[in-house]
């Protein structure tokens, strides 16, 4: 695959309102830089993230999807992230089975206090996706940007 130096991946981050979105806000409050590629979608809980959303993002041309939630045991809704963990593990395993690059998907637990972790995670994830190059395996050609 040709490596495009100027490739700027589109990264969709689903963040739960209580921990990870607050963590993202904290990294802003602390002025911790991470790449502009990351765009956050606020969801009440990581368990709101339907696998359909992830596939949809890839189909529409996202190059990486990351889901962030409260640490296991700290879910604002008690158990939401435990369900997330099972669903997403199975989905990621299936995507892997279908030959989709593993580094395009990620799940990370980020608490409201972990602004630094949020920034570092996004930095790393963006780099990983950048290294993979554009998502060609799951996108819908009709959605491709010119």
């Amino acid at each position: 695959m040709q490596v495009n130096e100027n490739f700027e991946p589109v990264i969709v981050a689903f963040c739960c309102n209580w921990c990870s979105y607050a963590g993202a806000d904290l990294s802003g409050t602390n002025r911790l830089n991470y790449p502009t590629n990351v765009k956050i979608i606020r969801v009440p809980c990581s368990c709101r993230v339907n696998p359909m959303f992830i596939l949809r993002a890839f189909q529409k041309g996202a190059d990486g999807v990351i889901i962030c939630g409260c640490h296991p045991g700290d879910c604002h809704y008690t158990s939401g992230n435990y369900f997330t963990r099972r669903r997403i593990t199975l989905l990621y395993s299936m995507l892997d089975f279908l030959g989709i690059e593993r580094d395009r998907t990620r799940l990370e637990w980020v608490s409201a206090a972990e602004g630094a972790k949020f920034a570092a995670t996004m930095q790393q994830f963006t780099e990983d996706v950048k290294a993979l190059g554009p998502n060609r395996r799951l996108e819908d050609l009709r959605c491709r940007k010119q």
Binding site: R85, S93, D96
Partner: peptide, 20 residues
Amino acid sequence: APLTDYNKDDCEPSIVHERG
């Protein structure tokens, strides 16, 4: 059913990386 159930010590999705 497995998807409407959980264990507190379930594996993380990173297991896909580890065992693949």
